[in-house]
Design a protein around this nucleic acid. Sequence first.
DNA 1: GATGCACCCTGTAGCCGCTACAGGGTCAAT
DNA 2: ATTGACCCTGTAGCGGCTACAGGGTGCATC
Lengths: 145, 145
Amino acid sequence: MSTDSTMAIGALARATGAKVETIRWYEKVGLLPPPARSTGNYRSYGAPHLARLSFIRRARELGFSLDQVRALLGLAGQPDLPCGAVDAIAREHLAEIDRKIADLQALRGELGSLIDQCGCGTVSDCRIVEALAPRERSPAIASRE
Amino acid sequence: MSTDSTMAIGALARATGAKVETIRWYEKVGLLPPPARSTGNYRSYGAPHLARLSFIRRARELGFSLDQVRALLGLAGQPDLPCGAVDAIAREHLAEIDRKIADLQALRGELGSLIDQCGCGTVSDCRIVEALAPRERSPAIASRE
DNA sequence: GATGCACCCTGTAGCCGCTACAGGGTCAAT
DNA sequence: ATTGACCCTGTAGCGGCTACAGGGTGCATC
């Protein structure tokens, strides 16, 4: 049949949206198994590689770390286990996302109110600089060397 | 007077909450000017350094990049300029924070609904794995090699 | 058969913002 | 004299790639 679905690294990259260098790097760090090589020493990928790399890409898009991806891949290969472990990884990641959102929102609030207070005169009476640099270069402190 | 406010690197670290290595690194990348040295070649910091490092720390806490901090420090040293440039840096940073928040919230939504759909049976019918790995290891694709 | 071009290979260095050593020197107190 | 806390320089590592340099391969075209 003509469905001899092997491809070189560039085709795999196009099929998954990953960059060629990224694929090689995933191989180096053990996320993708080393594929067979052609006569000219080219990497030759089949459908399982495509599936695995797609998995990795999707998990990365969801923000999982490579260590988490590794764990998920390990679990995905054992379909008879209860999926509590998968759930735990996902929930932990969700909690971290929530933490990051909260941090950024706090930041946003602080920064936003600083910007709102800026009357846009000169730097010397800019609230932003003032809030950052308490008395820097003011005679009271800076001149005492 | 006893207010000879020079200090070694450790004291500066304690005063600002930065780590000693971080301070040396800031010097290396040009954020902090190289201070005077004591007889034993110890760095000797004064009040201007303290103020400058405090500025850096606060800006970093607000999430500015080191390049942005550099720009802000440059502007802060010229008090007679209009503060529009400061404002611009801050607004750009704010916009980026907003972008990150939006990205994370989208992520959170996706991941949250995946987790909600997990009936917590076995891995093989886990929605999370399923969503990540479309048909990986299923006979339809994986076995065709 | 020579040329061109797209693709592939390995290996190394760089990005950000630190952090963590290793292997020494200095200083004050005991 | 010795301890111990501090300081110094220099290098390597983190995550997750990205970007070269300097070559080899494979196929089409003249």
